[in-house]
Amino acid sequence: MAKKKFVVGCFDNEEVLFPAVKKVRTAGYKIRDVYTPFPVHGLDHALGLRETSLHTAGFIYGITGTATALGGISWILTYDWPLNIGGKPHFALPAWIPITFELTVLFAAVGMVYTFCYLCQLAPFVKKHHFHPRATDDLFVMVIECTDKTNIDDLKGFLTNNGAVETDVQVAEEGWWWGRYDKDDEKTLEKEIVAA
């Protein structure tokens, strides 16, 4: 994990945010992320993010569940311990459909949620650097990564001209770490805030 320098621009309106994202990107800056209080539709495309393939993972988990159920039940009831149940054939497929379906859904759902948490690094006691506390309230926070060539003042001016209501520069840990939100730890302390 490494600390990096970021320029942060805060917007209070998604209608201003969209053109700003476009301009910042065409100007050649590298947007690290935009933090928003709710899902803004189309923002992922504007940022050039690729589509998530989480649902494909879900499909694979689901198939696994189907196979587990059908394989397990047929092994148990036709091979391991065949029983005559109500005169039905040992391979009583219609009676297995309900459990097969349930396990398909269970595997798919649980698998997807775990994959989601893994991909987004979400878990209890995970802590990350938050660029602005109001990013979960009413601000759209655009974070731009600085390179050696970035002229910070220019960039800040550029953001303000494009509608940012607040800009600052932060040095922050870019990954996640274990921590508690009621305690300030070293990783969040180094902040050089410059008023806009």
């Binding site: 992922d44 993010l49 998530t52 979400l122």
Partner: peptide, 18 residues
């Protein structure tokens, strides 16, 4: 709530996934 929120930041990619 820090524990309960799983370290959520509101990143665009995360919104897309969620």
């Amino acid at each position: 709530y820090g524990v309960a929120a799983f370290g959520w930041t509101g990143s665009t990619k995360h919104w897309q996934r969620i």
